[in-house]
């Protein structure tokens, strides 16, 4: 139920996004979705690919520092209040959210997919399932050729 996400350290300077994108493209690796977090001096690029381990090797052999971490993707109703409902369940369980972003595969029959990075992904999974929140499997997220 957990999804593997790749993160990459980047300096906050012009052109730093290009090198990893080119390295992945040269290896024929598709970026399914990505999100960039930054401070005034550095940034972290987080992204989902079908084969994170291979992508990590590609990036590391290009001299970059990347790591794989586990995230949880939650199905959210694509209407006002949809996300709030999921967040309420997370809050109620006292789960710490490190960050979250949209999977980006817009419409899945009126549903959106939101990626969450929890402090403790396993504890989060149990809480979400108990609260009736649907956690999406990596199969359905990654096999969709249109994603």
């Amino acid at each position: 139920m957990k999804l593997q996400q790749l993160s990459l350290f980047m300096e906050n300077k012009p052109g730093s996004l290009r090198a990893p994108c080119e390295a992945l493209a040269a290896a024929g690796i598709d970026l399914l979705t990505m999100s960039l977090a930054d401070t005034s001096s550095f940034g972290i690029l987080r992204f989902i690919v079908r084969d994170p381990e291979r992508a990590r090797q590609v990036l590391e052999s290009a001299g970059m520092v990347a790591r794989v971490s586990e995230v949880v993707t939650v199905e959210v109703e694509n209407k006002p209040g949809g996300l709030a409902k999921v967040l309420a369940a997370i809050d109620a369980a006292g789960l710490g959210v490190e960050y979250m972003y949209d999977f980006g595969a817009a419409s899945r029959g009126g549903k959106a997919a939101i990626i969450f990075r929890f402090e403790d992904p396993d504890a989060a999974l149990a809480v979400l399932q108990a609260a009736g929140v649907r956690v999406m499997s990596s199969e359905e997220l990654l096999s969709d050729g249109k994603a």
Binding site: V65, A66, R67, S69, Y99, R117
Partner: peptide, 10 residues
């Protein structure tokens, strides 16, 4: 930054 100290969290 080394792989040992890198984190996906700001």
């Amino acid at each position: 930054v080394t792989p040992e100290v890198f984190s996906d969290e700001i």
